[in-house]
Amino acid sequence: MDRMEQLRELLNQSPKDSFLRHALALEQEKAGALQTAIRTFEELLADDPAYVGSYYQLGRLLEKIGQPDQAIACYENGLMYARKAGEKRAQNELQSALDELLYD
């Protein structure tokens, strides 16, 4: 059983587990299923908008498929939630990604 299958099996038991959903999206990206990964991240964040680690990953994917405006919005939303949660590392990561997109 590969990692993606294992994650899906675990998600059958805990379908709203944000950590598992994030891991599944990363595996989907690694397998080249970018649109599926984007959809998984979007669904995760719709259910758990405070799961700040997914904003960076989703923003990167949106950049990769040529949607910089959506990536900017994603990074900005992530920054808002990271600030609320006091997650400085996530704030710095998201701000760097946003600055790079806006000013490079």
Rank of each mutant, 00 (worst) to 15 (best):
A33N: 14
Y81A: 06
V52L: 05
P49W: 09
K64I: 03
N77W: 06
K16H: 13
A73R: 15
E9L: 08
G53H: 08
K16A: 13
E63S: 11
K84N: 10
L26S: 05
L102I: 13
V52A: 11
G32P: 05
D48I: 10
L26H: 08
A50V: 12
P15I: 05
A31Q: 14
E29I: 00
R3Q: 12
A37W: 04
E63H: 02
A85G: 10
R60P: 00
L94W: 03
Y81E: 14
Q67A: 13
L102S: 07
Q95D: 00
S54A: 15
M4N: 04
D104H: 10
C74I: 09
L7K: 04
E5N: 10
I38M: 04
Q35F: 07
A71F: 06
Y103G: 00
N12S: 13
M80K: 15
E43Q: 14
Y51I: 06
R89S: 11
A97P: 00
P49H: 07
Q13R: 14
E93T: 11
G66I: 10
L10Y: 02
T40F: 03
A50T: 14
D47A: 15
E87G: 00
R60D: 03
D2P: 15
E42P: 02
I38N: 02
E43V: 06
N12H: 09
K30A: 14
Q13G: 01
T36V: 14
R21V: 02
Y103P: 00
D48N: 15
E27Y: 04
Q57I: 00
P15D: 04
E5F: 01
V52M: 04
H22A: 05
K30E: 14
R89A: 13
A50D: 13
Y51F: 15
G86L: 08
Q28H: 05
Y103S: 08
D104V: 01
Y56E: 10
Q57F: 12
V52Q: 06
R8C: 03
Q67F: 03
A85W: 04
D47R: 11
L34N: 01
D2Y: 02
A46G: 02
E87V: 04
A46S: 13
H22Q: 04
D2R: 08
D2K: 07
L26W: 02
K84S: 12
L45R: 07
A50W: 10
L101D: 01
A90T: 12
P68L: 10
D2A: 06
E9C: 01
G32S: 07
Q91P: 03
D47K: 09
K16F: 09
L94T: 02
L58D: 05
S54N: 06
N77L: 12
E9S: 12
A50G: 12
L98M: 07
Q91L: 05
